[in-house]
Amino acid sequence: MAQLVAVVAAAEAVDSVVDKQPVIDVRDAVKRYGVGDASIFALDGVSLTIDAGEYVAIMGPSGSGKSTLMNILGALDNMTSGEYFLDGIEISSMDESHLSIVRGRKIGFIFQSFNLIPRTTAIANVELPMAYQGVKSKERRERALVALDVVGLGDRINHEPTELSGGQQQRVAVARALVTRPALLLADEPTGALDSKSTADLLDLFDQINAAGRTVVVITHELDVAHRAKRIIRMRDGKIVSDDLNKERVA
């Protein structure tokens, strides 16, 4: 229970405030699939620190462990060994019921495949994470409207996912990820299913979000997407092989 209180308190305290504590602190993360000879290490000892307000791109060939790392950072998956501190709270030893609070309060997740709730309107999708946090329905609706407005879908709030284009669906997903004001925005190939116009719009949105002080981590195959970030991490075979500041963006 004390842990739960700590989680909630920390979630309230850190709201785009830049302090010196890293948002992400992963130490020697290992993720192993399968057992014995057939087992593979999707993550093979990854250590990584990301500070509040950073904009990080993760690149690497297919199968190098990017999604695996992202799922662990987003508390969607557990690791085989290693430690993970999110905003100073140890996630690696936390149980499911506490993790759901962390996910709701601290993390906004954007998936390559959108993952909107089917047969449910855009506004209802955006309201959903707030509903699980107990936000009152009036405030929920107002905040959802603002978020949809920010992503440019103010006129599409009552459309269901099947009535929206891929780019529009992804923007609903972004609105849903942002509406809880998470400390950390994680996006796994968010532009993978989008055309160049939608990609450009989405990247502009990420710039704005980052400019507002939020930490953004994006996985991508595309160089031009990666070059919008301020720091580029490259992975191969479950290991980080390079970690550089993006000279173009960081003066």
């Binding site: 987003g74 709701g104 994470p129 699980y132």
Partner: peptide, 16 residues
Amino acid sequence: TREIGIRKAIGAPKGA
């Protein structure tokens, strides 16, 4: 099940 996964990913507690 996928929908359940989505709900959990955006912070739905198991009980809910």
